Amino acid sequence: MVKITTWNINSVRLRMPIVARYLQEHAPDVLCLQEIKCQEHQFPYEAFAELGYEHTAVHGQKGYHGVATVSRIPLKEFSRHDWQDNGEARHVGVELPTAGGMILENVYVPAGGDEPDREINVKFGQKLDFLERMTRWADAIDRPTMIVGDFNIAPLESDVWNHKQLLKVVSHTPVEVESLQRFMDAHGWSDIGREQIPAPERYYSWWSYRSKDWRTNDRGRRLDHMWASPDLAKQVVGHSIFEDARSWEKPSDHVPLMTEFDL
């Protein structure tokens, strides 16, 4: 049994107390973090080691973005792709030799700014180009692979609190959903979350800080994803969302997701 978690932590050093709480309470074998917001030498390696997570692959940068994969089981850094094409730290891939040689890709897709028009919003164009580069990469995958992280897209109507109101809001626009579908089709990915929690059941992983009572208002979106190669998807035995983490002290605006495999 191997348990893998993904979580956009929105500053790992600031939120290390809730990361520690999650690891102690739920004990995933591997934790993939996005938006760590620190350089590699600033990452809290010792705090993770004390919790039993001695194996790390960290791709950081000063102040923004950044991804890290920490593990209780051995890992080998496998790749760093610059799908943003500007040097930002948004991806790290690892191999898990004791988990059937699985390749685990950890990615933080750009948010895309506020206007869903690449002619007036450079960030939106960068997001679409990022997805296109990921799609070309996925065409060539030839090993059991899982890709997890903050995709910054909620593709299904039931992935957002109000489909009609959000059709023109970045993260749920038709052009983004179509781009993400092309990425899915490129490798035949299985959307583990939606295989385990089928639509139209409610499934969110992010709630804005702007909502003071996030649970009552429940204006969520499913921005975080865990996708697996078709062969690997057959070995999934469970998937969980930890919504309570959104109410912990100094929370991230995202919550952890975990997938369990019988390898």
Rank of each mutant, 00 (worst) to 15 (best):
Val94Met: 15
Pro155Asn: 06
Val236Leu: 12
His65Phe: 12
Val148Trp: 03
Tyr22Trp: 10
Ala154Phe: 05
Trp137Asp: 14
Gly149Thr: 03
Val122Glu: 15
Ser208Arg: 07
His91Arg: 11
Ile141Ser: 02
Val255Glu: 02
Met102Ala: 05
Arg118Pro: 13
Met146Pro: 12
Lys37His: 06
Glu50Trp: 05
Lys76Pro: 10
Gln181Lys: 11
Leu14Ser: 12
Thr98Lys: 10
Val122Arg: 15
Ile9Cys: 06
Pro28Asn: 01
Thr145His: 03
Asp85Cys: 03
Val170Leu: 14
Gln84Glu: 13
Val2Ser: 02
Pro28Gln: 06
Arg210Pro: 07
Asn10Leu: 01
Phe48Glu: 00
Val2Pro: 02
His254Pro: 00
Gln61Ala: 07
Glu132Met: 04
Gln126His: 15
Trp248Val: 03
Leu33Tyr: 02
Leu33Cys: 12
Leu128Lys: 12
Pro17Arg: 14
Met184Asp: 08
Glu249Asp: 04
Gln84Lys: 10
Arg222Cys: 01
Asn86Asp: 13
Thr98Glu: 07
Asp129Asn: 13
His91Cys: 04
Ala138Asn: 08
Ser11Lys: 07
Lys234Gln: 13
Leu166Glu: 12
Arg21Val: 12
His187Gly: 02
Trp207Leu: 15
Asp159Gly: 06
Asn162Ile: 11
Arg136Pro: 09
Gly125Cys: 10
His225Tyr: 06
Phe124Asp: 04
Ser179Val: 15
Ser11Val: 08
Asn152Val: 01
Asn162His: 14
Pro256Glu: 04
Val2Ile: 10
Glu178Leu: 11
Asp224Cys: 04
Thr135Pro: 05
Ile36Asn: 06
Tyr45Ala: 05
Leu263Arg: 10
Thr69Gln: 00
Leu96Cys: 08
Trp214Arg: 09
Leu167Asp: 03
His65Val: 13
Ser205Val: 00
Phe78Ile: 07
Val67Asn: 01
Ala20Cys: 02
Ala228Asn: 07
His41Leu: 10
Thr259Gln: 11
Arg221Tyr: 10
Lys3Met: 13
Val107Lys: 05
Val148Gly: 03
Gly125His: 09
Asp82Lys: 02
Val236Trp: 00
Val177Phe: 09
Glu88Ala: 09
Leu96Glu: 14
Trp214Gln: 08
Gly66Asp: 02
Ser71Lys: 01
Pro174Val: 04
Thr98Val: 05
Arg202Phe: 15
Pro174Lys: 02
Ala138Glu: 03
Asp224Trp: 08
Gly52Ser: 11
Glu40Asn: 14
Phe183Ala: 13
Gln165Ser: 09
Val67Thr: 14
Val175Met: 13
Tyr209Arg: 11
Ala111His: 15
Lys250Cys: 14
His239Pro: 05
Arg222Asp: 00
Met226Lys: 12
Ala111Phe: 11
Trp248Met: 09
Asp244Pro: 10
Ile197Leu: 11
Glu260Asn: 09
Trp206Gln: 00
Asp117Arg: 02
Glu88Phe: 07
Ala47Ile: 07
Arg118Gln: 14
Asp218Met: 07
Ile9Thr: 02
Glu77Gln: 15
Leu51Thr: 00
Leu131Met: 09
Ala111Tyr: 15
Pro44Phe: 06
Phe242Glu: 12
His91Leu: 06
Tyr53Phe: 07
Val70Thr: 04
Val236Thr: 02
